[in-house]
Design a protein around this nucleic acid. Structure first.
Length: 467
RNA sequence: GCUCCGAUAGUGUAGUCCGGCCAAUCAUAUUGCCCUCUCACGGCAAUGACCAGGGUUCGAAUCCCUGUCGGAGCACCA
């Protein structure tokens, strides 16, 4: 099987579907899969030189290593060879009709005057195409199919055309005569031994087009499955490389890993495992209709992977300072993980005042349990310690909330899909290493991205993963 | 205009080929309860779907027709 990306940018989430499915099938059926960059249009689908590696990185993030990597732009001579053979069999002809002219004839089911040229002339003109004797638009090589075929999409399609713009890869920059996807991909799929092809519904007619070439060569066409497009809920940004690219260009997004971008780099930075994405993609199946992938499905799969190993911490968003009175304990020691007491406890000093989230501040005279610290009653704009008897919580009339000390907490900027959130976290967070995952209790999971200096004070930047 | 394809709960999916075991599977979501010093994890329960109309048949989610809705191609893009 193959994954045949157009290297025009890093991958968005939808791109994960192909490697997820074929990578899973490879493991399940002891198969083989390659990545083949179908980079045969140096102009309108001009390859982005950085995208080749970016895509391979994304693939690695998902947890797959291709058995082989090809670039179509390295294989032009192979395509030329096959074109020559096809011409000799009378299966293709050079054509100098303009696009409009040919389109009219085609729609009327009429052949163009070039269709009956003799093989020698076609061969000569094709060599001239290869030698760059024509410029863009002057000459194409068409596959002779059935000019009266009831589906106009299949009639004498273009196999090679001239492109004046040099290919960005130095190795391919001298070529001017480029194959179209249906020819290139059709030939490669056979040559590289594909047994199964999965592709989008936009390529529904490809197999039918390529079948004509396969018939000329007497090849057997691989099994083919078409699937629809994937859209994601929870995102304002369309899942489209060009859309995302434009938003980055305009400064609407900070980059391919902006948490608001539906890209693999973004999910990775948020601390979502590639495996969770793969699991969700495989669950989507391969139906031909368009599907909506619920982000909650990815989140659920990710929680399965990270919950047990992720330590807990406190983080208070936009905290309100409340003084503590009546001598509460000086330090709280909640466990790093409730299901794994052996990992130890955190050391959180309480100090004279704590920060709480506005919604958590109890009404006057009401009690609240500061997790790890004890029970407090809201009196006179402060929280008065009333004891450490956990039974008040068990009885159900006191809520347990998270908190941080006003003095010894550390500033955190949490980057989320809905923008940045400022707050403060318990002291231990400053010592966490980049890339570590935490669960901010009652807030959600987050990935520590880096620590930065903000006017003399150290600040931690984290990316929100999911609830 | 021509040519393809599709339609099962909020989302995804099983079942459709070879009609009965489907008053429809599983996951996720939502809600409630239990567990819990988290609104995490875990356990239990509830909610919720065969696009519409005809036809064939003893019997249709499954076969046929029509319609509706949605998607795709008809590029010298991939």
């Amino acid at each position: 099987m193959r994954c045949a990306p157009n290297p025009n940018g890093p991958w968005h989430v939808g791109h994960a579907r192909m490697p997820a499915v074929i990578g899973t099938y490879r493991e399940r059926y002891d198969g083989w899969f390659c990545v083949r960059f179908d980079d045969t249009d140096p102009e309108t689908k001009r390859p982005d030189m950085e995208a080749y590696d970016a895509i391979l990185e994304d693939l690695d993030y998902l947890g797959f290593e291709p058995d082989e990597i090809y670039r179509a732009s390295d294989r032009l001579e192979t395509y030329y060879e096959h074109a020559r053979e096809l011409i000799e069999m009378g299966g293709a002809y050079t054509c100098s009709c303009s696009g409009e002219e040919f389109s009219e004839l085609k729609n009327a089911g009429k052949p163009c005057p070039h269709r009956d040229k003799d093989v020698e002339t076609v061969l000569e003109e094709f060599e001239d195409m290869i030698d760059g004797e024509y410029s863009s638009g002057e000459m194409v090589l068409r596959v002779k199919t059935d000019i009266e075929h009831k589906n106009p999409a299949l009639r004498d399609w273009v196999a090679f055309r001239m492109i004046d713009t040099p290919h960005p890869r130095a190795e391919a920059s001298e070529y001017r005569c480029w194959p179209m996807l249906d020819f290139q991909s059709g030939v490669d799929d056979h040559l590289l031994g594909m047994t199964h092809i999965i592709r989008g519904i936009d390529l529904q007619d490809s197999a039918k087009r390529q079948q004509f070439v396969y018939d000329y060569f007497d090849w057997e066409y691989p099994e083919v499955v078409h699937w629809g497009h994937v859209q994601l809920d929870d995102y304002d940004v369309k899942v489209s490389t060009s859309t995302i690219s434009a938003l980055i260009e305009d400064g609407e997004l900070d980059g391919w890993d902006d948490p608001r971008a539906p890209t693999l780099k973004s999910l990775r930075r948020r601390g979502i495992r590639g495996e969770a994405i793969v699991d969700s993609m495989v669950e989507l199946g391969t139906s031909t209709s368009d599907v909506d992938l619920a982000m909650s499905s990815i989140y659920s799969n990710n929680r399965d992977l990270i919950d047990e190993e992720t330590d807990r911490r406190f983080f208070v968003r936009e905290g309100t300072e409340v003084p503590l009175t009546e001598s509460p304990p000086a330090e709280a020691n909640p466990p790093l993980h409730p299901n794994h007491e052996d990992r130890g406890v955190r050391e959180i000093p309480s100090g004279d005042a704590v920060l709480l989230e506005a919604d958590d501040i109890p009404a006057a005279e009401n009690r609240v349990w500061l997790k790890g610290l004890g029970c407090f009653e809201h009196t006179d704009d402060s929280l008065a310690y009333t004891g450490d008897d956990i039974d008040v919580v068990r009885e159900g009339d006191v809520d347990v909330i998270h908190w941080v000390p006003a003095a010894e907490s550390v500033p955190v900027r949490l980057r989320t899909m809905d923008g940045d959130v400022s707050g403060r976290a318990e002291p231990g967070v400053a010592a966490l290493e980049a890339d570590e995952l935490v669960q901010f209790e009652r807030v959600g999971f987050a990935r520590i991205d880096h620590h930065e200096s903000d006017g003399g004070e150290e600040r931690t930047v984290a990316y929100y993963t999911h609830p």
